[in-house]
């Protein structure tokens, strides 16, 4: 995933030149298949030697949320396909928490 991020940044660099990347901002769902700490740990290794070397990695977490069919209301989800915290029903449609997005980069 980090390689994919660096590749996108390199692509941006080819489109509009800049000297360095100061910051890379990601939007990650709390229930997505990614551990933010692992990303932070690996980032300097993967970014090394690329235009993103030395950049700061900012991660915005999107909390899990769903729509409960029984309550007819939005609810917080702390686990994927977890029960509704209000009525304990299981008819939940997950509406957020799955995000894996490269939002923006700050360059100079």
């Amino acid at each position: 995933m980090l390689e994919s991020i660096i590749e996108t940044v390199e692509e941006e660099h080819r489109k509009q030149p800049f000297n360095r990347v100061r910051m890379i901002r990601l939007k990650l769902g709390a229930l997505a298949t990614v551990a933010p700490d692992s990303l932070r740990f690996c980032f300097p290794i993967i970014a090394g030697g690329s235009v993103a070397e030395g950049a700061q990695l900012e991660i915005d977490t999107v909390q899990g949320a769903g729509w409960c069919e029984d309550c007819r209301a939005s609810i917080a989800l702390t686990e994927r396909y977890g029960p509704c915290p209000v009525c304990h029903g299981e008819r939940i449609h997950m509406t957020s928490g799955d995000e894996l997005q490269l939002t923006e980069i700050e360059v100079e």
Partner: peptide, 16 residues
């Protein structure tokens, strides 16, 4: 600006 923000808004796994 020289120090600027580039909006990307792309799924990380877009390429895959």
């Amino acid at each position: 600006s020289q120090e600027r923000t580039i909006r990307i808004e792309r799924a990380i796994l877009d390429k895959n």
